[in-house]
Amino acid sequence: MNAAPDSAVDVRAVSKRFGALAAVDQMSFSVRQGEIFGLVGPDGAGKTTSMRMLASVMRPDTGGILIDGVDVLADPELAKQHVSYMPQRFGLYEDLTVDENIRFYADLFEVPDKVWRERALRLLAASGMTPFGKRLAGQLSGGMKQKLGLTCALVHAPRVLLLDEPTTGVDPVSRREFWQILYALRAEGVSMVISTAYLDEAERCDRLALLHQGRIMYCDTPRKLKQGMPGAIILVTSAQPRPLLEVVQGIDGVEGVLLVGDGIHIHVDDAECRLPQLAQAIAASGQTAGGIRQIEPTVEDLFVALLERRQQTP
């Protein structure tokens, strides 16, 4: 297999079945050096299965994977030297302290003593974990656990970082810190594949693959994906958005409605002509609405729109 010279990860037509279920189906993508690549999809889309194959802890049925130029199927152990994998489920030892966990992974990757100690100090400081070195990992909060996982994953300075839903169950502050670390890594040339079920988070990635039932439906930058979406999104803000759902559903030109924190997103075929119609319908229904305007679609809108279209044209 020949890789494009600058690609850190190269996935070619990879498939994995569990019995009759195709968990990953003919997946292909490549990640450039220093790029954050997002695998986005709902539960059961095949994110973890893909990550496991990239981390060479699971073998694909067919297809090939190159990581940093190393053929993962031919020499998984060599590939593992350059990769760090953070599983979805917390994989560190809860009965070991933060420091002991870090040391364990530094030892497994044979990082020189001085190097990893210095690196660990820096990483712990960056994630605000310095005071917790002696605390048992099992006694950390969810966010701190994930930051410890990231620290352990980074202690041997991997060239490719695989993160499976790293921010699930993490508070917004920790999540922001987490992403700051990732951006700093990107600046150092580390390539990352990160899976997430949060679409707002997906927008932070350089490129995205939308995964559904084991298949990549679209793969592009968040911006291009949004531009390529047919129609437009109209936001109706409301303190009580739920009743609005029924009001707008079934109106001509409305292709889908999505409940968000502060209102609803309405996917319409044409914003200019539908916006007044919607405003009128909402006013007629007697529901309170704060405002109504067209917005840039989010990845979430996009995903919902894509799934709708797929369901309409099987």
Partner: peptide, 11 residues
């Protein structure tokens, strides 16, 4: 406990 997945991803 789920710690083996990480272990087998190391060399």
């Amino acid at each position: 406990r789920g710690t083996m997945e990480l272990m087998v991803s190391t060399p």
